[in-house]
Simulated scan of single mutants.
Amino acid sequence: MPEHRIFTTAFAKVYPLYVQKAERKSRTKEEVDQVICWLTGYDRAGLQRQIEQGSDFATFFAQAPAMHPNSSKITGVVCGVRVEEVEDPLMRRIRQLDKLVDELAKGKKMESVLR
């Protein structure tokens, strides 16, 4: 099966889109960062380093300090795909991140988003 294009896309290219999506719904860049750090175990400096280095999604998740143990509780549909049914582990992580940003943008309380 061919590799998905998103795997080799720079995280830094998609990150501003996450922030814009949240900000359109009166959420903040800081809240987006909090969600990303919760999921991946990066601290803010580590997240910033990944953005500055231009790491692609595969590298971003491969170098993540520790995926949150509750990440398996991230369920639901993103782009018409059930997050918990995604076979590829990397694609599932990307979809989990998409889902968290979606929930944040939809106005969910941070306590609910961060399970």
Rank of each mutant, 00 (worst) to 15 (best):
M1N: 12
H4A: 15
H4G: 15
F7P: 00
T9V: 14
A12I: 13
K13V: 13
Y15I: 00
P16G: 12
L17Y: 01
L17E: 11
V19F: 02
V19A: 05
A22N: 06
E23C: 15
E23P: 09
R24C: 09
R24I: 00
R24M: 11
S26L: 14
R27W: 02
R27P: 05
E31Y: 07
E31N: 07
Q34M: 14
V35W: 02
V35H: 06
I36Y: 02
C37T: 13
W38F: 15
W38L: 03
T40S: 14
T40Q: 09
G41V: 01
Y42M: 04
R44K: 14
R44D: 15
A45V: 12
L47A: 12
Q48H: 15
Q48F: 11
Q50P: 06
Q50T: 12
E52R: 14
Q53P: 01
S55C: 08
D56A: 00
D56H: 07
F57D: 05
A58G: 05
A58S: 11
A58V: 01
F60A: 01
F61M: 02
Q63V: 10
P65S: 05
M67L: 12
H68T: 02
P69N: 02
P69H: 09
P69M: 04
N70F: 01
S71K: 07
S72L: 06
T75P: 00
G76N: 05
V78M: 05
V78F: 07
V78K: 00
C79W: 00
G80F: 02
G80M: 04
G80R: 02
E85L: 07
E85F: 03
E85M: 07
V86M: 04
E87F: 12
E87C: 05
D88E: 14
R92A: 10
R93S: 15
I94Q: 03
I94H: 06
Q96W: 04
L97Y: 05
L97M: 14
L97W: 05
K99Q: 11
L100E: 08
V101I: 15
V101T: 09
D102Y: 10
D102S: 01
E103I: 12
A105S: 13
K108F: 11
M110I: 07
E111D: 13
E111H: 11
S112C: 10
S112T: 11
L114P: 07
R115G: 14
